Computed example of a mutant assay.
Amino acid sequence: MDATDGPPILKLGVEDAIAGLVLSTEAHWNQTEEDWRIFLHDGIVFGIRDGMRLVATAALLPYSGNNAWISMVLVSGTHRRRGLATRLVDACLETARKNGLTSWLDATPDGVAVYGPLGFTPTLQLRRLRLVRPARADAPPSSSASIAALRARDRRATGFDRTALLSAFAQRFGSRIVSASGAIALVRDGRTARHIGPLLADNAAAALAMVDTIAHSETGPLLLDAVASQAAFLEGLTTSGWTIERPFQRMRFGPATAAAEETPFAVAGPEFG
C-alpha cells in the first residue's frame, strides 16, 4: 500500500478525549480522560477513523528547548497490521521536523525494533513496576512541597521546562507533591492505579524511603516507572514487594538539545517522559 493510501490522517481536538480513552482502555493502559486532554490541548494528536469510530492515534507533546514527546501510539485490535501506527508516527516526525523539534519516546521492546531503523537513538532504560496494597493505609504524608520546587528539580533531571504538565498533574483531585530528606515526588490518579512520578532524590535511600512513605498511605495499587540505571533503588523496590511488569527504552530522534544535571529515580510515565 502506498503511504498516501488508506483512510486520511486527521488532527484531533479536545472533544475526542473520550474516544482516545476508549483506545487506551482497550490496550489496558493507565491514562485518564484528563491525561488525554493534556495531549489534545497542549500537543498535536493525529488520528484515523473508520467511519465515526476513532481506531488509531499518535501524539506529539512539545516541551521547552525544541523538544517534543511522541506517545499514545494506539491502534484498535480490529485495525492492527495495516500500517496505521507507522503512518501516524511518520506524521508526528514530519511535524517535529518542520518545527525543528528533537523527538523523544519510550518504546516497548517491540517498538525498539521499529523505531531503531527510523533513526531513533537509545538513551536510558526504564522499568514499569506495580505494587498491590491491602485496603488499609496510614495517614498520608504532608503535601508541603511546592510545584515550584518540583518544577526546578524536574528541570535539572530532564533538561526541559515542564511547568504546564506538572501543574496540570498537581491541580488534579487527589494529586499531591511529597517532599522529605532530599526527595520529592508527585502522586496522581490513573485509570486503574495511582502513579508515582516524577521522583527525584539525593540518593537511593532517600528515594526508597519516599516510596515507602507514599505506599503506606495508599489503599490501592501503585505504578512507578523506575530508571533502570538506578540499580540500588530498583533492587530495593523489588525486595519490598514491587513487581516489574515491563521494560521501556527511551529513544531520541535528532540532536540532543538539553543536558540533564541529575538522573531521576522515576519518571512521569512513558507517555510523558
Results as ranks from 00 to 15, higher is better:
E33P: 07
A170D: 05
F233I: 11
A107R: 00
Q125L: 05
E94F: 10
D16M: 03
D42Q: 01
H216C: 11
E218D: 12
L150V: 07
K98C: 14
G20H: 13
Q230T: 14
A145E: 01
T25M: 02
S76C: 03
S103D: 05
A96M: 08
R81N: 06
V227M: 11
P122N: 03
R153I: 12
L84S: 02
Q249N: 04
R151D: 12
I38N: 06
M251E: 01
F46G: 01
L74H: 02
V114H: 02
L150E: 06
L224P: 07
A27F: 10
K11D: 14
R49W: 07
A256P: 11
T25S: 15
F169N: 06
F272N: 07
A170N: 02
W242N: 09
E15N: 13
L129I: 10
A215D: 00
I177R: 02
S229R: 14
P198N: 05
A27P: 08
D2M: 14
S24E: 09
E235I: 13
I244W: 02
G51A: 00
P109V: 09
G220A: 12
R80T: 05
P270H: 11
R162T: 03
L23R: 07
S240L: 12
Q125A: 14
G273M: 11
L186F: 03
S146C: 01
E94A: 14
L105C: 04
A268L: 12
T238P: 06
R156L: 15
I177K: 02
W69V: 03
S217Y: 00
A157Y: 04
E94V: 08
Q171K: 12
R250M: 10
E218W: 01
V227E: 12
F173S: 13
P62W: 02
S71V: 02
A17T: 06
F265N: 10
R82H: 08
A58N: 01
G254H: 10
F173W: 02
R151Y: 01
A206C: 14
Q230L: 12
A258Q: 14
L150I: 04
L234A: 09
R128T: 10
G43I: 04
A201M: 03
L208M: 11
A27T: 13
V75S: 07
A139F: 07
L208N: 07
A58Y: 01
G77D: 10
V89A: 03
V187W: 00
G273P: 02
E235V: 06
L21K: 15
S217W: 00
A96S: 13
A17H: 07
